[in-house]
Nucleic acid binder design. Structure first.
Length: 562
RNA sequence: UGCCGAGUCGUCUAAGGGUAGGACAGCGGCCUUUGGAGCCGUAUGUAGAGGUUCGAAUCCUCUCUCGGCAGCCA
C-alpha cells in the first residue's frame, strides 16, 4: 500500500509551468500591465513555417489562452526583397491549422510604416537620430571590433534641419540604394554592437508585396519590432535567444520615444535531431530540388508534417512535452514521433495493406467468405467492417523466411502462422522461378481455427496481415526516413552532403484492402503491423491511390540491428 | 581573448536552502489474434574546485565548457 501523498492523480498535482509563466504570474501580481496579457507571433513572410515556429506559436497562443489574454498574428514584413504573398498565405493557413486563434487580428508591420516614419522624425528632432552617408563597406569598417570601439560617422552631428530634409528626401526616393541610412545616435564605444549607432532605415527601391512602390525606405528589424509591439499593446514580446543582445536596443528605442513599452523575453529555439531548421537552409533544399517543395513530407515544415499525416493535436502536444527554457537544446526526434503515434493510436482506423506482396495460394480452400474486423481497438465507436477472404491472398514478403533466425515467429516452410481475423495457415511448398526467387507459397488452412470461433483453440506465435488477391486494390506507398544522416547537420558546413539518400522509398505495387478506395484526404490509417498512413495530397487521385507513411509503429523485432 | 546568455539522467524538462521528479529513448517482465496498444518494474543526472550552512542543484568565489553577437537580414 502506498502512503496517501502518492494517491493523487496526476491531474491534481501542481503542474509546473515554464519561466515565462512565472514572469507573467509576477506581473499579474504587481499589476504591471493592468491585468492584461497580450502576445503575438511575428513571422517574416520569407518562407514557410517550420516545427520551430510551431513551438513559438504554441507558446504564445498557449499563454494568451491560459491567461484569457489575446494573441496576434503579425507579419514582420519589413524587407520587400525577400518577402512574398505566397508565404503570407501559407503562414495564415498553417497558424490556423495548428489551432492558434488570432481572431480577426492578422496584422502587418507594413501597415505601421507611416507611424514608424513619424516616430523616426521625432527621434531626429530630439537629436537621437541622424542621416549617414557612409556606404555599407564604410559602416562595416567603422563599426569596430569586440575589443575596439567603433569610429563615429562624420555625419553624426548634422543639424536637425539637415537631417529632417535628408530623411524626407530618402523617403521620396531621391537617393540610390545603399547611399544613405538613418541611424540612431547611441554609442560607438558600446560593448554591445547593436548599440553602435544602429541603422533604423535603409534605402530599398523594391516593390513591397503589400505596399507596392509606395516606400523607398524600409525600417530595420530592431527599429521596427518594438514599435510594432508597442502599437499593438503587446505585454510580453517573446522571441528567441539570438535577440537577447538586441534587448537593450529594443528598450532604448521605446524609452527614447517614451511610448508604451512591452517586455521582451527570450527563450531557446527548437532544434530537432536529424533535420535542419533554418529558413535559409530549408529554402535551399526547396530551390535546389533536394525535396519536392516546402510541403515535402520529409521537411520539418508545418505543411510538410501536415502532408505527412501529422495532426495539429500531436504537434501541440509535442510543444507541451518539450517545454520552454533558456538553454540551447537539440531535441530528439523520438519525442515528436511519440507525440504523433500517441495521437494516431487513438484516432487511426486499422486496415490491412501489404506493401511488398508475395502470393499465397490456399490449396485446400475454395469459394470465399466475409470475416469481421475491428476498425479501432482503442475506439469502440469506430465500429467494425467485413474483410473478403479468398483462396489466393497476398502477404508481406518480409513475413516469410526460408531460413529464419531464432525468434522469427511468422511464416516459415512447414510452419504455421495466423492470418489476422482469419485462419491459421501452414506453409507446405515454396515455389520459385528459374532465378531462385520465391514467387508463390502453397499453403493449407486449418478450418477449425477461424478467428473468434469456438473451435479455435490452437495457439501460434505469430499473426500476420494479408489482403485478398481477388479484391485487393493496387496502391503506391511512399515511405519516409529522416532527411539527414547525422544528428545535427545544421552546424556542419557540408550539411548538404549529409542528406540521407534513402529518405524516400516509393513502393509502386502495394496491395491494400478494398475499403481503402473510399479513403478521403485527411483520413488517418494504421496499416496493421506497419505504421500510420494517409493519402498524399499532391499525388493521390481516385485512379491511383498514393499513401504516405506518417510514422512507423514501434517495432521491437530486429530493433538492435537497426 | 570584449559583451550577453546557458550548463540537472542518453534526450527534453522540473525542483530556486530540506528525499533530485516527470516524459521520451533504453533494459527486464506481464498481457496480447497488430512483435501495435496497455500494464508492472528497473538503471542512468546536478560541469569542476573551494566556501557559507545543521543541510547546497539552489547562495558566494574561482575555473571549465557550450551558444550568440562585428547585415543597410529577421
Amino acid at each position: 500500500m502506498q502512503t496517501d501523498n502518492n494517491n493523487k492523480p496526476d491531474s491534481e498535482k501542481p503542474k509546473t509551468k515554464n519561466f515565462i509563466y512565472e514572469i507573467i504570474d509576477e506581473d499579474l501580481k504587481t499589476n504591471k500591465w493592468g491585468g492584461r496579457v497580450h502576445t503575438r507571433f511575428p513571422p517574416e513572410p520569407n518562407g514557410y513555417l517550420h516545427i520551430g515556429h510551431a513551438k513559438s506559436i504554441c507558446l504564445n497562443f498557449g499563454i494568451a489562452e491560459h491567461y484569457n489574454g489575446k494573441f496576434n498574428l503579425r507579419f514582420d514584413d519589413t524587407n520587400p526583397e525577400k518577402e512574398d504573398q505566397e508565404y503570407v498565405d501559407s503562414i495564415v493557413e498553417d497558424v490556423k491549422w495548428l489551432g492558434a486563434d488570432f481572431e480577426d487580428r492578422i496584422l502587418y508591420a507594413s501597415d505601421y510604416f507611416e507611424q514608424m516614419y513619424e516616430y523616426a522624425v521625432a527621434l531626429i528632432k530630439s537629436g537621437k537620430a541622424y542621416v549617414c552617408d557612409l556606404t555599407p563597406e564604410e559602416i562595416r569598417a567603422t563599426r569596430g571590433t569586440p575589443t575596439e570601439a567603433g569610429k563615429e560617422s562624420p555625419h553624426r552631428n548634422r543639424t536637425i534641419e539637415e537631417n529632417l530634409d535628408l530623411f524626407a528626401r530618402m523617403r521620396q526616393g531621391e537617393f540610390d540604394n545603399g547611399t544613405k541610412t538613418l541611424r540612431a545616435k547611441i554609442d560607438m564605444a558600446s560593448p554591445n554592437f547593436n548599440m553602435r549607432d544602429p541603422i533604423m532605415y535603409r534605402i530599398v527601391h523594391a516593390e513591397h508585396h503589400r505596399q507596392g512602390n509606395k516606400w523607398a525606405i524600409y525600417p530595420t528589424y530592431d527599429w521596427a519590432h518594438g514599435l510594432e509591439d508597442s502599437l499593438e499593446g503587446i505585454t510580453h514580446s517573446i522571441c528567441t535567444l539570438e535577440f537577447e543582445n538586441h534587448r537593450p536596443l529594443y528598450d532604448w528605442y521605446l524609452d527614447s520615444l517614451a511610448i508604451y513599452h512591452p517586455q521582451q523575453i527570450e527563450f531557446a529555439r527548437l532544434n530537432l535531431s536529424y533535420t535542419v531548421m533554418s529558413k535559409r537552409k530549408l529554402l535551399q533544399l526547396v530551390n535546389e530540388k533536394y525535396v519536392d517543395g516546402w510541403d515535402d513530407p520529409r521537411m520539418p515544415t508545418i505543411s510538410g508534417y501536415r502532408r505527412r499525416g501529422y495532426t495539429p493535436e500531436a504537434i501541440r502536444n509535442f510543444a507541451e512535452i518539450i517545454g520552454v527554457a533558456k538553454r540551447d537544446a537539440l531535441t530528439d526526434i523520438s519525442l515528436l514521433e511519440y507525440a504523433i503515434r500517441d495521437d494516431l493510436n487513438k484516432k487511426a482506423k486499422r486496415v490491412m495493406a501489404v506493401l511488398n506482396p508475395i502470393k499465397v495460394v490456399l490449396t485446400n480452400y475454395d469459394g470465399e467468405e466475409e470475416l469481421g474486423a475491428i476498425n479501432n481497438p482503442e475506439d469502440p465507436e469506430a465500429g467494425t467492417r467485413k474483410l473478403k477472404f479468398t483462396k489466393e491472398l497476398f502477404i508481406e514478403q518480409s513475413d516469410f523466411m526460408e531460413n529464419p533466425p531464432k525468434g522469427f515467429f511468422r511464416l516459415v516452410p512447414g510452419g504455421e502462422v495466423r492470418l489476422r481475423y482469419a485462419y491459421i495457415i501452414k506453409c507446405e511448398e515454396v515455389i520459385k522461378d528459374s532465378d531462385g526467387n520465391i514467387i508463390e507459397l502453397r499453403c493449407t488452412y486449418d478450418p477449425d481455427t477461424k478467428s473468434g470461433s469456438a473451435t479455435s483453440t490452437k495457439k501460434v506465435k505469430g499473426t500476420i496481415h494479408w489482403v485478398s488477391a481477388k479484391y485487393g486494390i493496387n496502391a503506391e506507398v511512399r515511405l519516409y526516413d529522416r532527411l539527414f544522416l547525422t544528428e545535427n547537420p545544421g552546424n556542419k558546413d557540408n550539411w548538404l552532403e549529409l542528406i540521407n539518400p534513402n529518405s524516400l522509398d516509393v513502393i509502386k505495387n502495394s496491395i491494400v484492402e478494398p475499403s481503402l478506395k473510399d479513403a478521403v484526404m485527411g483520413d488517418k490509417f494504421q496499416f496493421e503491423r506497419t505504421g500510420y498512413f494517409c493519402l498524399d495530397s499532391k499525388f493521390s487521385s481516385t485512379e491511383k491511390l498514393v499513401f504516405n507513411r506518417t510514422v512507423t509503429l514501434k517495432d521491437s523485432w530486429g530493433k538492435k540491428s537497426s
